[in-house]
């Protein structure tokens, strides 16, 4: 996480380059495997896999905002629902293909994010969280009440849609995009500025950081990713309706995944997503119980492992590899 500055005294560049190449190779390999996966897996696992990929994308976006930017959002569902509605609308009305519709959804997500940012970013800390919650609820109520988008009952997508293996590949592509965005945003100079804003926004602006723009950049990126995920979900269901597409669960789940996996941890979304989807499958027949148990897990992790499963693993590895050796801060 702190690899953005090569430490003095160590010839930084070569090891950094090597790490970047290794990372890119591993990422490419994983992506290749994902693209092949639908052909190899049973229908059930393709279904699960699609869900998992979608959740990881949402969680990555949420982690970018909350973990790296300190912007704890409860408004993921606003952008998810927006993406779903825009994608479905475009597919029905314009004859656009799915990739293009998703792209436009991303733009729509960014537009709303840009529009809302003025108000939302005036709110700091907990108030930002409450503000995003209000935004999500307001959008949902709006869509329920105005008659244009099928009102409370929603709409069906009337054109032919790609089958699940194809959508799985779309989701894999979206995850690749999310990974690229996250790598750029968390491993670059931008991440230094973003974390500075997270730690102390006023102090950051005193050293020249345009905090608003930095937060906005993260917010735009996250909103675009979430909107595209929403679009894919609409394509998967072949329908949109306000209670589902704008449902609170789309705000809750990414948050739960990241807290389970590890807030501000690069692998948090993936680990948390796998855990979350697994629990969800085990309790598939008891959706309420699933959510309630998620709540219990959340509370337990916040209390006993605030850095999630990744943080736990890290602490374990550290203890293994360096028994007794404590890297204390000397005076």
């Amino acid at each position: 996480m702190t690899a953005t500055l090569s430490s003095p005294g160590r010839p930084g560049t070569t090891s950094l380059d090597r790490r970047a190449i290794a990372g890119a190779a591993a990422g490419g390999l994983a992506f290749g495997l994902l693209m092949l996966a639908p052909a190899l897996l049973s229908t059930y696992f393709v279904e699960i896999g699609f869900k998992l990929l979608l959740y990881i994308v949402l969680a990555e976006a949420w982690n970018l905002l909350a973990g790296y930017g300190g912007l704890v959002s409860l408004g993921t569902s606003s952008f998810f629902g927006l993406g779903a509605y825009v994608t479905a609308g475009l597919l029905n009305q314009s004859g656009m293909g799915l990739p293009l519709a998703l792209g436009v959804s991303a733009l729509a997500g960014m537009t709303i994010a840009l529009f809302m940012s003025r108000g939302l970013f005036r709110l700091r800390g907990l108030y930002f969280t409450v503000g995003t919650l209000a935004l999500a609820e307001a959008l949902r109520l709006l869509v329920v009440n105005v008659p244009w988008f099928g009102g409370a009952s929603g709409l069906f997508v009337t054109v032919d849609l790609p089958d699940t293996p194809e959508l799985f590949r779309f989701a894999a592509g979206l995850l690749a995009l999310a990974t690229a965005v996250m790598t750029l945003a968390t491993g670059s100079r931008f991440s230094v500025l973003l974390r500075a804003v997270r730690d102390d926004e006023d102090a950051a602006s005193q050293v020249g950081v345009r905090a608003f723009r930095i937060k906005l950049a993260a917010f735009l990126a996250a909103s675009a990713l979430v909107a595209m995920a929403g679009g894919l979900q609409a394509a998967k269901l072949g329908a949109i309706e306000p209670y589902g597409s704008f449902g609170m669960q789309w705000s809750i789940d990414p948050l739960a995944i990241v807290i389970i996996g590890g807030l501000g941890m690069r692998l948090g979304a993936v680990i948390g997503g796998a855990f979350f989807v697994a629990i969800g499958e085990l309790l598939a027949d008891y959706p309420e119980l699933h959510v309630a148990i998620t709540g219990v897990v959340l509370i337990l992790l916040i209390r006993f492992a605030p850095r999630g499963l990744c943080g736990l693993a890290q602490a374990l590895i550290k203890r293994r590899s360096a028994p007794g050796a404590t890297r204390e801060a000397g005076a």
Binding site: L5, V192, L193, A196, R198, D200, A204
Partner: peptide
């Protein structure tokens, strides 16, 4: 008011990069 969760070097880098 340093950036608490960042290293000392990163604290300086914030100004430089901005």
């Amino acid at each position: 008011r340093p950036f608490l969760d960042m290293t000392v070097a990163e604290n300086l880098a914030v100004g430089q990069f901005s």
